[in-house]
Simulated scan of single mutants.
Amino acid sequence: MTFTDELRKENDDIYQLIFNHPFVQGIGKGELPKQAVEHYIKADFEFLNAFVQVYSIALSKSTNREDMAYFHEQIQFTLYDEVQPHLNFSDYIGVRFEDLQGHPLPPSGDHYIKHMLYHANMGSLGETLSALLPCPWTYLEIGQELIKKYQPTKDHPFYKWIHFYAESGHETEQMRKRLDAFAANASTEEKLRMKDAFRKSCQLELAFWEMSYTCEEWPSNKAVTQ
């Protein structure tokens, strides 16, 4: 069993909670509150900006061209390819994607990006990848689970979103292989930190879906609107 196989097995409980979350199931059913989708897009745009920052830090800490090339490719993928699912969601709510950019992160999203940035700045490349991997890996499996359960056709409102992530296996597999390579040379203590970073990111992935579905706000903002 590889290191990433272990990570997947140890965190299956959170994966199942993510698959069964009402936002995720709403994607499969093609029925979601538009306010929740808008909240998600606003937060995810900023989250992916942070992903690029984390990849950039990892790139700056890389000592060989293979790692440099990998992180450079991931920056390009995040900046350009992952626009497509956002456009699908934007079309669903009838709001221009450009109008959903530049908004403050809600608490759970803010916590998540600072968790990733902490490991990128303070930890090893193995820790950094451990904090990053749950995002692409859970989305890959979400897409696959939704296709299996709902078998969406091209007239499904989230067909493009679902298939984009269901077919993102190459990105996840590349990250897994790189993380397994780092783990092979890591000490016991570092592996424990890597496992902790991975599980917390899984928890924060679940929190991100809940944040979006409930339109989570900072307490002071919520008090003002009541």
Rank of each mutant, 00 (worst) to 15 (best):
M1P: 03
T2L: 02
D5Q: 08
L7N: 08
L7T: 11
K9F: 10
D12E: 12
Y15H: 12
L17Q: 15
N20C: 11
P22G: 12
F23L: 09
V24G: 00
E31P: 00
E31M: 05
A36N: 05
E38V: 13
I41N: 06
A58F: 12
S60I: 07
S62R: 14
E66G: 15
H72M: 15
E73R: 14
Q74Y: 10
F77H: 07
E82G: 05
E82A: 08
P85N: 05
L87S: 02
N88L: 03
N88W: 01
F89C: 03
V95L: 10
E98N: 03
Q101R: 07
L105I: 04
P106Q: 01
P107Y: 02
P107K: 00
Y112N: 06
Y112M: 06
K114N: 11
H115I: 02
M116V: 01
Y118G: 00
H119Q: 02
A120L: 01
N121K: 08
L125S: 09
T128E: 02
S130E: 09
S130T: 13
A131F: 09
L133K: 04
P136F: 11
P136D: 08
G143K: 01
Q144I: 04
K148A: 12
K149Y: 04
Y159D: 03
E167L: 13
H170V: 15
S187R: 06
E189F: 10
L192R: 13
A197W: 05
E205R: 07
S212T: 09
S220E: 13
S220Q: 11
N221D: 13
